[in-house]
Amino acid sequence: MASVEWRPEFATGIADVDHEHRELIGWINQTLAAAGDTAGDPGKVGDLLGEVFARISAHFALEEHIMSARRYDQFAEHKRDHEHLLDDIRDIMDDVEAAGGPVEERFSARLSEWFGAQFRTHDARFHQRMPGA
């Protein structure tokens, strides 16, 4: 079963962001675990996804706050990505809701792929641009 692990290169150096990244990874892994559990309750995946959606929304809100406070040069781009990613999660949520039956592996694949990419690309740049904060 796929899961996301905290890696040192995820660190942005901004205490709030890193703290929340770790918390998020916890929620994500719980969700992935539930999604991978084909015998489990599909409603539970939906509930957990709702929670992940809320936490990620809050996380992005905080990141955007810090970015605009520090006049991060790629704020607009980053913000646009945030909104797309939230749209993606909402799509996944609706698919889970509509499927009604056991949740398939591909959701977990989409999730882990998505989170991995998110940390690798965007936050890495954010980290380089905002050193030592």
Binding site: L49, E51, A54
Partner: peptide
């Protein structure tokens, strides 16, 4: 407030 979303179900819906 971003945590005031009705999609939250795994925890009590208490926003920031």
């Amino acid at each position: 407030c971003p945590t005031a979303t009705p999609f939250r179900r795994a925890t009590a819906l208490v926003p920031g």
